[in-house]
């Protein structure tokens, strides 16, 4: 009974993370996307904390704290600040319409479930489902990076992808903390680099719409 409950709750939190991924795809405005990302990171922290409780693995609490501090608070605030500094709080341009993006998203979820379930046939039920969910979150993050034209939302897509990786990491037993800390710091470093790049791109091209870069890259003549 108790095991069933812990399983159900882990499933529920994982699904919340995934739903936040869909929420990001649904949003059009930059600030709404950032808020949804913060919510996703918050749900991720909850997932890590619950896994720490279930698996009796205290180091996962550290993972939860890292997710909470860095991804749910620091990164969204930094991006908020960046967006305000750059003055780009307008409607987000999407390359694909929202409806189609959502349909592709559901197809990706189905794909990851079809992929993960046969591959992990011998693993414990809890791990399998969390892996399927985490894989979906990763794919949705990639989809976000593909469908958005704005550099800021592409970065958010990248961070969402990272969230999926951490979700996968906490659900698999026995992942050492070193890996997680290095992931967290690499995200932070990436954030800083992205921030610098935003300024550089805008200085150079007067916009953050990557569409305009294509002429320079040689895709269009």
């Amino acid at each position: 009974m108790l095991q069933q409950f812990s399983y159900d709750l882990a499933h529920l939190i994982g699904a919340t993370v995934l739903m936040a991924g869909f929420g990001m795809l649904y949003q059009r405005r930059i600030f709404a996307v950032l808020n949804t990302f913060a919510f996703q990171a918050f749900a991720l922290a909850a997932a890590a904390a619950w896994q720490a409780h279930v698996q009796h693995a205290p180091h996962l609490y550290a993972t939860a704290a890292i997710a909470l501090v860095f991804k749910a608070l620091l990164v969204p605030f930094a991006l908020h600040w960046l967006v305000e500094r750059l003055g780009i709080h307008r409607t987000v341009e999407t390359a694909l319409s929202i409806g189609w993006t959502m349909i592709v998203g559901v197809a990706l979820v189905a794909l990851s479930i079809l992929l993960v379930l046969p591959v992990t046939a011998k693993a414990a039920a809890l791990t399998r489902e969390s892996l399927a969910l985490a894989m979906s979150v990763v794919l949705l993050g990639m989809l976000m990076m593909i469908t958005r034209r704005n550099a800021v939302t592409q970065v958010v897509g990248f961070m969402a992808l990272e969230n999926g990786l951490i979700l996968a990491a906490v659900s698999a037993k026995g992942m050492p903390l070193v890996v997680e800390i290095s992931i967290a710091f690499s995200v932070l470093v990436a954030m800083t680099l992205f921030g610098i790049f935003f300024f550089r791109i805008r200085e150079r091209f007067d916009t953050l719409d990557l569409h305009y870069l294509e002429t320079y890259r040689g895709d269009r003549s």
């Binding site: 409806g99 979820v109 189905a110 379930l117 489902e129």
Partner: peptide, 22 residues
């Protein structure tokens, strides 16, 4: 409207998918 209600449809679809997972 299409986005909003399409979202509702997709939530229903996801509910069914998750049932098959469990």
């Amino acid at each position: 409207y299409a986005d909003f209600l399409g979202g509702a449809l997709l939530l229903g679809l996801l509910a069914t998918i998750f049932l098959y997972v469990s």
